[in-house]
Amino acid sequence: MAVNLAILAIGSNLGDREQALRAAVREIAALDRVVMVAASGIVETAAVKPDGVDLAAPAYLNAAVAVRTSLAPLELLAAVNAIEAELGRVRGVRWGDRIIDIDIISFADLELDSPTLTIPHPRAAERSFVLTPWLQLDEDAAIPGRGRVADLLAELDTPAEYPAEPLL
């Protein structure tokens, strides 16, 4: 049974955002066949909607975690979707406001494009709220086919703020 490194991005813009992130990290760490390796600090950014940045929507708190897992990618997706549901996530409007969002950003060096999961995450390279905390986990991180996380982040003009303590 192979053990792979996966990067998960976590976000929240409704309710007690920091508590939601911390609860998600605890639940991820408690998953069978998953070992928490590291967690980033928390960053705050404006909400991003299909039409771009939405300053009228509540701001997001975001973080990233690195885990080692023997779960297959779709098993990990099912597990994090169950955590989202347990924490009160309601799937309604695509890219809508949410209590919690957990995305698989990368999974080892895997490239996957299925109806339910795309790895690496198709928009990770464009989002400072993913890249900033990921860079905290690994200064040499790279997105297969896209480049180094540090270089991708340097190309963006959407800064992320650091309002809170690290998650671990």
Rank of each mutant, 00 (worst) to 15 (best):
L117S: 08
T118F: 00
P58H: 07
I99R: 13
A6W: 00
S106N: 06
A160M: 10
L110M: 14
P73I: 12
I10C: 11
A38C: 01
L14V: 06
R26V: 14
V34K: 12
S40G: 05
A108Q: 11
Y60K: 03
P133E: 04
I7Y: 09
Y162H: 12
A164F: 02
R22H: 12
Q19R: 13
A142H: 09
N81V: 10
P73T: 10
R17L: 08
I83D: 08
P58C: 12
L76P: 03
V93T: 12
A9K: 09
V37Y: 02
R68V: 08
L55H: 11
L156D: 05
P58K: 08
L74A: 15
D16M: 04
F107Y: 11
D109M: 10
G15P: 05
E165S: 15
G52A: 03
G92M: 08
A141E: 00
L76F: 08
F107K: 00
V25H: 06
A141K: 01
A59H: 10
D97S: 13
I42T: 11
P163F: 00
T69F: 10
L137N: 07
R94H: 14
D140P: 03
A39C: 14
A72G: 11
T132G: 01
P73N: 12
V90T: 11
V43H: 05
D109N: 15
R123N: 02
D97W: 02
T118L: 03
R98G: 08
L117A: 06
G145M: 00
W134E: 07
I10F: 07
L8G: 06
T45F: 11
Y60Q: 04
R127H: 00
G96H: 02
V65K: 03
L76G: 07
E75I: 07
A142I: 03
R123S: 08
P50S: 11
E126T: 06
V35N: 12
D138C: 14
P120M: 03
P163L: 01
V93D: 04
R68Q: 15
A6P: 00
A78K: 15
R127Y: 01
A24P: 05
G88H: 04
L74T: 13
L135H: 10
D51S: 14
N4L: 14
P159E: 12
R22W: 07
P120I: 03
L117P: 11
E155L: 05
D109S: 14
L77W: 11
P122Q: 04
A46N: 13
N4T: 15
L61D: 00
I100P: 04
A64R: 09
A20L: 06
I104S: 01
P50R: 13
E155Y: 00
P120L: 04
D103F: 07
I99W: 02
L77G: 10
